[in-house]
Design a protein around this nucleic acid. Sequence first.
DNA 1: GCTCACTATATGTATAGACATATAACTTAT
DNA 2: ATAAGTTATATGTCTATACATATAGTGAGC
Lengths: 229, 229
Amino acid sequence: MQGWLEIKAEVSRRINVREWPPGSLLPAETALANEFGCARATVNRALRELAEAGLLVRRRRAGTVVAEHPVRKASFDIPVIRLEVEQAGRRYAHRVLHRLHETPPASVRTLFGLVATARAIKLDTLHLADDMPYAWETRWINTKAVPDARQQDFEAVSANEWLVRNAPFSGGRYTVGARLAGAELSAALNCGSGEPLVVVERNTVDLDGLGITQVQLVYAPGHLLRGGI
Amino acid sequence: MQGWLEIKAEVSRRINVREWPPGSLLPAETALANEFGCARATVNRALRELAEAGLLVRRRRAGTVVAEHPVRKASFDIPVIRLEVEQAGRRYAHRVLHRLHETPPASVRTLFGLVATARAIKLDTLHLADDMPYAWETRWINTKAVPDARQQDFEAVSANEWLVRNAPFSGGRYTVGARLAGAELSAALNCGSGEPLVVVERNTVDLDGLGITQVQLVYAPGHLLRGGI
DNA sequence: GCTCACTATATGTATAGACATATAACTTAT
DNA sequence: ATAAGTTATATGTCTATACATATAGTGAGC
């Protein structure tokens, strides 16, 4: 027993077999380092990772406690759509259907820090995989945060990809929901009206918290988001 | 400039302002440690975290490179449903509608490592928030992996919560999709038939890779999964 | 009993040094 | 020229030590 990975596995095992049940206090790092015959830093690395994973709760002076209700962090990757499609072995293409410069709705104005009369770029894009509709994208781009976007038509490189590479990015939030295909969507995605569709809405902000872009992605029927714990 | 957090922020900044553009090679850890006036271990911690976040790609001997297509890791928490509801300031309750012991479908049998004739527990549960339908849960539990589940009726403590605390858990996968409310669901969730609903399907496996449980959660109309990047 | 200051303690972080390991780049043999 | 073996190097990890920091617990003073 030496490496932090082995220690992490062993601590994880003891939690799972209820040797250290939920709510119980673990021995201090120094004691564990002593038991495992390694430096405290090694134990620290193992316990820190388990705490990040939600299995342990650590507090100075109070020590390390097994979480009562382990909050599992599920995660999925948000790749550039082109890569998502190509990784599935399909041919990617996209078509920009509208590129407008108009006043965004209030929620987007708030995110972008814009006054009521200000305008932003609005893009409607259809993403294709093997020439079949893959996803419908409605996007707002804040020209205040990304002035260079004015010169882009996003035909050759999609807005998705262009922004990832050209906008200083710091974080964002997203929601996942479901909606019905209306007239416009069923035509664009080549599906029946009234079909249930997965909708992902995502916004990203720069280092100052200023909104860069807001995207709504409506996937073709049957699409599943996949992730792991 | 000393702490790993500051170094992480500074490196992140240089990537964002294209001082280190996508694909470029960063100075070696020793050089950065020298520049920032700190130990190599401190730089290592900062760069390791940025690599985990998908911003950098690191390889021994080859060095550290800025990712060409940063794969953002989106994540959301999977809490116990009771806590999810209570955290929103609502009163939680659940009703077990069916508790059967029958042969699961092939996909679940494969996950559970069961022969064709074997049986497992099937639970249908309705989760309520302020007495309003919140989510419909269809769950299979592998009694081979969790024998103690036989003695549980899951009335007082939901299966969700009981399993989190009583089943040795190691990982899992999930999918998020959309479906229409059929007759049974629209009755249970008190919504119109044909409404679009968010469906989360999740399975968890124990340390040996043996399936513990498979859940399908269908949320009431309008529900959004929320997460961050 | 209550408040406030103090102290002890467990985690958090930093450091210098060392060795491990993967692998790009180079060298040698065929 | 190509293949095989060698070396140099950047990251990965571990150690021992030190100091920083949050905070549970203690005790003094009212």
